[in-house]
Amino acid sequence: MLHRFPFSAMASPCELQLYGDDEAAVAEAARAAIAEVERIERKYSRYRDDSVLSAINHSAGEPDGVAVDDETAGLLDYATTAFEQSDGLFDISSGVLREVWDFRSGRVPERAAVERVLERVGWQRVRWQDGRIRLAPGMQIDFGGFGKEYAADRAATVCHEHGVSAGLVDLGGDISIVGPHPDGSPWKVGIRDPRARDDAIAWIPVAHGGVATSGDDQRCMVIEGRRYAHILDPRTGWPVSGLASVSVVAPHCLLAGTASTIAMLRGEEGADWLDGLGLPSLCVDTEGRVRGARGLRRGEGRGVTTHA
């Protein structure tokens, strides 16, 4: 039978949906999975001074940098690969651009201010080798681009380790599948229409792996009549236009999240690029049109988790 465990983490509504006959065992699995999500949140929070991430950022400018543990090293390696494979679009050092871009205000910063911040952006300026990371003065990194997706995958693994083989982990719309429904049928993950928040415009059958979505219509801004997504190109310091939301299904939520982020950053070409990846995906452009839909089905789904 299906048990649901709603909770809140990483500034998002979250939920575990786990199948199991032994209620106590399922509850224990859920407790351990939620603890794992909270552990990752604490470890990589930008807002906690005692986090590993803060220790790295505080070390910016120090010649020896800081040594990191295996898990962090693995994530930094992953970030390096994503940076290389995206031609520099996926960049965990781009967060400082938020100092000049305030999307809520709708105001566009001075070009000169953007240029100044850009001098502190660029993973190629970070020295990451032999287990030590050295940030140039003024630089910062954050794991906002993949921390939640990684946590979803880890939580799903913890559920597995506790004997749960059917269920899913949903961290604010980033979904990692523990396993298909007990009868073997896939979960049907709905993709919400960015223009009509309560309606799914399509759904994706997902038995394994993960689903992640980048972009959100609420975070679009209009500059000089053109709609921009709330996502910044680390190479120009400027928002990207073209796509409002991208959802991707991949063997892991982490991969899905990275692919959807890179597709967003590629703007108009993002849908074609995703097509080349061969992953089921759905792109919605800033005018609300579906631009690329691969491996998607329309219609009613069972066990729907609708997120966009």
Binding site: Y78, A82, T157, S176, H252, L254, L279
Partner: peptide, 16 residues
Amino acid sequence: ALGALTASAMALPGLA
């Protein structure tokens, strides 16, 4: 890119 990212994700300790 997918191959490279997958390989990199696989190297993460304890990923599924």
